[in-house]
């Protein structure tokens, strides 16, 4: 990793935000911004009904991207993280005919994704950089192929429809159900956001950054880099499972596409778009991503990829700190 030494001046600034720890002015500012974002999301969902659906998906994907963010802290890019999202989603699809209760399905999906994360994690944390990325990619493609090939169980690329669900024993109407899913996603997003923030501030979280800069030093200090990375990996898988469950419950239809490598690419895309500097980044990124995609698709249905790709290119070239980087840069500028 020769690149880290001469990283642009903007990048360490975000890391510093965290280095200052949960205490201090930044916490208040980040918290205020998070509240503001949540309020804005609720307002938009109320004013434009169909965006409620888009925002629910964005929140769900944001949760999965939080997991990517953890691994990015360690300098590792998982190009196959959609496999955990797909695991969560297919868990819901398979189990929903027997257990309709959302409050049971969600933890179940998280549990299965965590178990898969542990199994895969034990294997992949031995690898770094491209090997880490490519192994994740390969394993996600294995899952994709299985979901596609085992037609008798998964209905192949047609996917499985998720039937009507229960919330705490009740079956609400469509409108209420949409609000419930939105609220659930928002709640989980806030919960996981706080969790990730606390984790990154803890010694375990700080050790992650050590893997990125000088892993050997970490080991000299008697810390097992593999164990540090494994913990982060399993946590990220858990969040991927939660995200997948939310996606399945919201869109009510799951397909193998969820596990395809381009879906994993999207998650990494969102992480960078939002900015890796804050736990708020993934949600800003996910909202930005979904909105660009929806509006690009509405404006030029046949060239939305071109627009999305161009946005990504521009962000990387001109605002490598992502949306969060731009926002926090502006806030800091005002504060000083």
């Amino acid at each position: 990793m020769s690149g880290d030494r001469d990283a642009p001046a903007a990048a360490p600034a975000h890391v510093q935000v965290h280095a200052q720890g949960p205490a201090g002015v930044t916490l208040a500012r980040e918290g205020a911004l998070a509240l503001l974002a949540a309020a804005a999301a609720i307002l938009v969902a109320w004013a434009v009904p169909w965006l409620k659906f888009v925002l629910t998906l964005a929140l769900a994907k944001g949760i999965a991207v939080l997991g990517i963010l953890l691994l990015l802290r360690a300098g590792q890019v998982s190009f196959g993280h959609a496999m955990f999202l797909a695991t969560g989603a297919y868990t819901v699809a398979f189990v929903a005919p027997r257990i309709e209760e959302v409050l049971l399905l969600l933890p179940l999906a998280m549990l299965l994704a965590t178990l898969l994360g542990l199994a895969v994690g034990l294997f992949v944390v031995r690898y770094r950089d491209i090997f880490f990325g490519m192994l994740n990619l390969a394993l996600s493609m294995v899952l994709y192929s299985l979901l596609e090939k085992l037609y008798d169980y998964t209905k192949g690329t047609d996917g499985i429809r998720v039937a009507a669900l229960r919330f705490a024993g009740t079956v609400p109407g469509r409108e209420t159900q949409e609000w419930l899913m939105f609220g659930l996603a928002l709640l989980l997003a806030i919960g996981f956001g706080l969790l990730v923030r606390a984790y990154l501030g803890s010694p375990m979280g700080r050790a992650l950054a050590g893997i990125k800069t000088r892993e050997t030093r970490l080991e000299f200090m008697g810390i097992s880099a593999r164990r540090v990375l494994l913990f982060a990996y399993v946590l990220s898988a858990l969040m991927g499972g939660a995200a997948g469950a939310l996606v399945a419950m919201t869109s009510r239809h799951v397909t193998p596409q969820l596990a395809y490598w381009t879906s994993s690419g999207e998650l990494v895309f969102i992480a960078i778009l939002g900015g890796a500097g804050s736990a708020l980044g993934p949600f800003l990124g996910a909202a930005g991503f979904e909105l660009v995609r929806v509006y690009a698709a509405a404006a030029v249905a046949e060239a939305w990829q071109l627009i999305l790709g161009s946005v990504l290119l521009l962000v990387i070239l001109f605002a490598p700190g992502g949306i969060w980087g731009m926002l926090s840069g502006r806030l800091r500028g005002r504060g000083a």
């Binding site: 990793m1 690149g3 880290d4 990283a7 990048a11 990015l72 300098g75 890019v77 190009f79 950089d129 491209i130 990325g133 690419g265 990494v268 895309f269 992480a271 960078i272 790709g309 161009s310 990504l312 290119l313 990387i316 070239l317 490598p320």
Partner: peptide, 11 residues
């Protein structure tokens, strides 16, 4: 960072 390089080519 490596991830940015990867994503540029993804874009």
């Amino acid at each position: 960072e490596e991830v940015l390089q990867l994503l540029v080519t993804f874009a």
